[in-house]
Amino acid sequence: MGDLINVFFKSAFIENMVLSYFIGMCSFLAVSKSVKTAVGLGGAVIFVLALTVPINWLISVPILGADGIFGTDLTFLRFILFIATIAASVQLVEMAVEKYSPSLYNALGIFLPLITVNCAILGAALFMVAREYDFAEATVYGIGSGIGWAIAIIAMAAIREKIRYSNVPAPLRGLGIAFILTGLMGIAFMSLMGINPANYLN
């Protein structure tokens, strides 16, 4: 249990997707202009990550792995299969949400289909493979990194809403200051690095 909490904390705060690996920066910069849309996209990313990381684990270990059902190492196929899984599950989620919860569908709007090409989703799946997580850890990792991404984009949107009233030098306005703010946030998040929840649980 301590292990799982550790994975969660690490993925959500210490090794935050955006702030320490720059993953998902495109939508992070493009959609962080208002808090409302940032919350919508953050929620959608948490949902899709919690769904696709375990599915991709099932593909990569029992199917493509060296000890999997084919008995040979097929890991070179993982890029194509991962991206296909992600595209398909995003499509399915979109259809399900549209049918059963039109209000949520309207709230998420165009963000759902865009998530397919959000690096954070594929990035989480590839990190999960590189770090050799087991199934439970992979699930927790998916949820944790989704929450980390959502926190980062919501905080960024809040800062950008305020910074509109500040006197930023003209050439730095918009994109430039957004990069520098992200860097500062990254340094702030690094201060969480010393915390290891496993120490407090055992």
């Binding site: 730095l172 430039g176 957004a178 990069f179 520098i180 992200t182 860097g183 690094m190």
Partner: peptide
Amino acid sequence: LPASALFLVG
């Protein structure tokens, strides 16, 4: 640190 790359791009 990762943050410096962001500062440099800025």
